[in-house]
């Protein structure tokens, strides 16, 4: 069906092109610092960053910070999936409710999670709760609004046909509405996931003592520049990994939407 064969020449050349771009960038970075175009005090060459990465990993520090950040992301994201999907389905199903809430939600969506962080600190202190909330807020809106939009655009005749067969409400919800909206829900979750990774850094840079955001900030303050870059790269890996998992899960539920 799709171009899934690894021997497919088009796909192979795409793969080469992708890695070429990255390799070229690393080579440029390495030479520019080696040749002294940039001071290595501010920009460590990738080889040194890689050594720092390995040493952080070896000492167990990187793993610890990585897992803590990952845990925070997953807690915040799960919370917004539960709340966002539930309310999104509800609001999308009842058009009148949506009319009352639409403007409010548009306003909330524009309200940056970073701007609200001081509010959360004020209300809930510097602990895990505030961190969970900022990540939750950042990812809630794309999940909620995408779900809501998906429900609004379900083909009504699918629901009617199940009704005419005598289906119960539970059946219609579980077997018609949910699978029909699944692609939109996953688009929302993927978007929310990338917002989560951004938000976790902000949360860990203020009043935290663990996590990748903290590692980056701490390394900068102690002038351990190579470890700072190692932290940044780990963060990118975290984001890409999460995106990959969510995309794979999403493809599974929305394969029928293609073509």
């Amino acid at each position: 069906m799709s171009a899934g064969s690894p021997r497919n020449p088009q796909r192979f050349s795409n793969l080469v092109a992708r890695w070429c771009g990255l390799a070229l960038f690393l080579a440029l970075w390495e030479t520019s610092t080696r040749l002294g175009w940039f001071s290595s005090t501010y920009l460590s060459p990738p080889s040194v960053v890689f050594q720092a990465l390995v040493s952080l990993l070896w000492r167990g520090e990187l793993g610890r910070h990585f897992l803590i950040s990952l845990r925070r992301v997953l807690i915040g994201l799960s919370l917004s999936v539960v709340v966002g999907v539930t309310f999104g389905l509800f609001i999308g199903y009842f058009k009148t409710v949506e009319r009352y809430l639409d403007l409010l939600f548009q306003a909330f969506r524009q309200m940056s999670a970073f701007a609200l962080f001081p509010v959360f600190i004020l209300l809930f202190g510097l602990g895990e709760l505030s961190k969970a909330l900022i990540i939750f807020w950042a990812s809630l809106w794309p999940v909620l609004l995408n779900t809501c939009d998906g429900v609004k655009h379900i083909d009504k005749v699918l629901i009617q046909s199940a009704q005419s067969m005598g289906a119960s409400r539970t059946f219609i919800f579980g077997r018609i509405i949910l699978p029909a909206v699944a692609p939109e829900i996953f688009t929302g979750i993927r978007l929310g996931g990338s917002y989560c990774v951004m938000a976790v850094v902000a949360a860990e840079m203020i009043g935290a003592s663990s996590g990748l955001g903290y590692l980056i900030m701490y390394s900068q303050e102690t002038f351990n520049i190579a470890e700072m870059y190692a932290g940044i790269i780990s963060l990118a890996i975290l984001g890409m990994g999460l995106n990959f998992v969510l995309r794979t899960a999403g493809n599974f539920f929305s394969a029928w939407k293609e073509e």
Binding site: D155, V157, L158, Q160, S161, S164, M165, I176, A180
Partner: peptide, 10 residues
């Protein structure tokens, strides 16, 4: 049983 003009297949 109802058959619709728009097929209504999932």
């Amino acid at each position: 049983g109802m058959v619709f003009q728009g097929y209504a297949l999932l």
